[in-house]
Design a protein around this nucleic acid. Structure first.
Lengths: 162, 162
DNA sequence: CAACAGTATCTGAGTAGTCAGATATTTCCT
DNA sequence: AGGAAATATCTGACTACTCAGATACTGTTG
């Protein structure tokens, strides 16, 4: 029975597909534990952290909700509820969208900005300490470029798939 | 305010950390849509698919539940419930563990094996079509090795972080 | 071997997402 | 302008996880 799977993979795929599968799993687990780490030291979920970063980039005026659901792996309903919680926690504020009265703008509060900075520090530090520094030295340079290509290719694939 | 984040990242990190962050997000989204694709064409969730593969590798005797929660991003409680559903769907069966009467063994049913093969085909085909084939030709070869290093490094990081 | 710490699984309660449908507003077409 | 189709957000009902605590067994240690 193991053979059945093995041969299905052999027939349709190759080394690369298998390596890719393992790799996606590993990346996922890593993001998972990095998210946990932020949660424990900063008290915000991984998704909240991503939203804080998105809003920090957006500046003073903030963004409509829809912009957040587009950048995230979250439905619009999920964004509504996530922003509800972040608003309750004082990290963001909702306001009217002057250009479109269906929509609303979300922007960081002061506390939200502070939390974004704090969580970024923790996150960057974790990535460095637990992933980058232990990386075999001969790979560190090569990876910058590969990571870019991988990110872009993965993004393209996501676009094609949905 | 965008500056605050920017400089926090600059201070603690570098190109690599930023590239890495974008990349992790992209990998995650990709796994997410690949999971969706399987769900739509095979009627099983992403996690069920992973469990099917794990059990297919394990062979006739199956595995104790604990082995599954170790390979997955799932708590033991989550595994109990996932296996409950898979059992209800006829994909796996639970049995006694002769070596340890606290635990139970989980193994694939015939239907589970068939589903594993079916879902593997779909998944491999999706990875090839949407990710690998569009990959710039000059990267395809290089990546096999890099993916391995990345998978291992990510796995190590996960181990260190938790 | 009795007690106790440890491990495997299950379960009740709580939380965070999904989906589908409601509402308000905009956009586009004629 | 008038009305249909599209879009932005919110909500109720549902699902699938987590956490903590219960139960049952195992392994260790004095």
């Amino acid at each position: 029975m193991g053979e059945a799977i093995g041969s299905a993979k052999e027939a349709a795929g190759n080394e690369l597909v298998v390596a890719f599968g393992r790799f996606l799993g590993a990346a996922n687990r890593l993001e998972h534990v990095l998210g946990r780490a932020i949660e424990e030291s900063c008290g915000i979920s991984h998704l909240m952290f991503e939203v804080l970063l998105i809003l920090a980039r957006a500046g003073e005026a903030g963004l409509p909700m829809r912009a957040i659901s587009r950048e995230q792996v979250l439905t619009t309903g999920g964004v509504t509820r996530l922003i509800d919680r972040m608003e309750a926690a004082g990290l963001v504020a909702r306001g009217a969208n002057p250009d479109d009265r269906r929509g609303r703008m979300v922007r960081l509060t002061e506390a939200g900005e502070a939390k974004a900075v704090e969580a970024s520090r923790v996150h960057v530090e974790n990535v460095r300490r637990y992933f980058l520094e232990p990386l075999p030295a001969e790979h560190r340079e090569v990876f910058v470029e590969d990571l870019r290509v991988l990110s872009r290719s993965a993004g393209d694939a996501v676009g094609r798939l949905r």
